[in-house]
Amino acid sequence: MNTTEVLIAGFGGQGILFAGKFLAYAALLQNRNVSWLPSYGPEMRGGTANCSIILSDAQVGSPIVSRPDILIAMNLPSLDKYEQEAKPGASIFVDSSLISRKVERTDVNVYYVPATQLSTDNGLETLANMILLGHVIEKTGVIPEEMIRPALEKVVSARHAWLLEKNIEALSLGKNYKE
């Protein structure tokens, strides 16, 4: 029985919830159990946002991720808040364009991706989340690659179909990023 607990955290507006929904759908399409739980608050934009996603072969108990296997930190307050919560052996992904400090823990795998910088350099503004996820998928195999397109088709609305290829581009940029 395999369970992966993912916590994505950052500012509202960085596509935290979208990235989480994408992962959740990818797992659902494999007929796995999944839960997706957002933090919710009065700030619609710019406030802190985080999202708990649990992908599991067993029934999901608590949907709240307090000890993540995978932590994706998209701003400094999120890294400060959650670094110590990650399980020993967890993988921590850091948007190094926005977070200048290094992870202090030594019992975790750390990946630094200048995702925000890469997004602006490559005309993929607002897709730093997906660049990071591309790297997450490459390094952890949290979802199989063949699920990427079908899952995106579920979460990118028909109205924004043109964004589908942009998302694929961002994911593959993250996948191929070499530190």
Partner: peptide
């Protein structure tokens, strides 16, 4: 409760 309302599951 808030989690039941806000969470997504299949």
């Amino acid at each position: 409760d808030g989690t039941m309302g806000q969470m997504m599951e299949p």
